[in-house]
């Protein structure tokens, strides 16, 4: 078990797979013990050849008939647990989320009923409990794989393909997800979180995310914002409600409200934000964001404070 364990199920689908897993572990354990016991019995058998061993019949029974029966049953059961869903009986999706894997972070875009983008965030998903949500998975560069073990099996993000993963969170909670397909450099440091919220909380979160960034309410915040805009950060990052509208890096409109920065790397705090800005490559080797050692002292504190305030 653990925050990223498929056996710690937060959805019906993950729970079904977990039951399948435990049954298979038990059966495999029994078969292994039986085979080893048989081998031990064979090795200790008296020299005057036990009759059962000299016949080919039981080799065929144990090696051919038994596995075919067992495997057929297992296959039938396994196929009934769909894995990925999408059957005709599934309820329609409440809404869709587009997630693009990029080296080495997750671009998350919530979509309206007409497929238009409502807002963009990064490295976290929030879902309403019990509602079926479809996640459209794509890649901006190389192959990644979207995996939240607590909710569903993984599904790859492949350039030129759109794979759709239905998610239904069964209870409130936060699950950790991680890229499961080796995608070069900082593959190990490409995580995200999925949080399931009761419907009213989820609606509030949606509304807040759709809104532009809040006006800074103190001098430090205003100084931070001014530095951000003056230093060219907006070439890569967007902060809605300001002139910053870059699309290369994550949208930072509500960065302060996200649980982590650097794709699951560090908790979002003023200190971690400051450390990231000065030298992101030290924290996450090969990261695409260049270091900004020009920010120091009061400037750095102001910039980090403003970003932290963007909730």
């Amino acid at each position: 078990s653990g925050p990223q364990s498929p056996l710690d199920a937060g959805s019906d689908e993950a729970a079904g797979i977990a039951i399948l897993s435990w049954v298979m572990f038990a059966a495999a354990g029994l078969i292994l013990v039986a085979v080893l016991a048989l081998a031990a019995a064979a090795a200790r058998a008296p020299a005057e050849q036990p009759r059962w061993a000299t016949r080919e019949g039981w080799v065929v029974a144990a090696g051919l008939v038994f596995p075919i029966v067992m495997l057929s049953a297992l296959l039938a059961w396994g196929l009934s647990i769909t894995g990925g869903g999408g059957g005709a009986s599934s309820p329609p999706a409440a809404f869709r989320i587009a997630v693009a894997g990029e080296q080495w972070w997750w671009r998350v875009t919530y979509l309206g009923p007409d497929g238009s983008a409502l807002f963009s965030t990064a490295n976290e998903l929030r879902l309403p409990i019990g509602q079926r949500v479809e996640v459209d998975l794509t890649s901006a560069d190389v192959i990644h794989s979207f995996w939240v073990p607590g909710l569903a099996g993984k599904l790859d993000m492949i350039p030129g393909h759109v794979n759709t993963l239905p998610l239904v969170a069964g209870r409130a909670g936060t699950w950790r997800g991680q890229c499961a397909e080796y995608c070069g450099g900082a593959h190990a440091l490409m995580a995200f979180t999925v949080t399931a919220l009761p419907a009213p909380d989820f609606e509030r979160w949606m509304a807040a995310q759709a809104a532009p960034a809040a006006e800074p309410d103190n001098a430090e915040g205003r100084r931070g914002r001014a530095l951000f805009l003056a230093s060219g950060c907006g070439a890569c990052h967007a902060v809605r409600g300001t002139p910053a509208s870059g699309t290369i890096g994550p949208d930072l409109t509500h960065v302060g409200g996200r649980p982590t920065i650097g794709a699951g790397l560090l908790p979002t705090q003023r200190g971690t934000l400051a450390a990231w800005i000065v030298d992101p490559g030290h924290l996450k080797p090969e990261v695409r964001m260049p270091p900004f050692p020009v920010f120091r002292g009061e400037d750095l504190r102001a910039l980090a404070a403003w970003l932290e305030s963007l909730r």
């Binding site: 396994g78 196929l79 769909t82 569903a152 099996g153 599904l155």
Partner: peptide, 16 residues
């Protein structure tokens, strides 16, 4: 364990 990972749903969780 090979039989286990041949099961599509189980593989979805344990692949990679």
């Amino acid at each position: 364990t090979g039989v286990m990972v041949a099961m599509v749903p189980f593989d979805g969780q344990t692949h990679d």
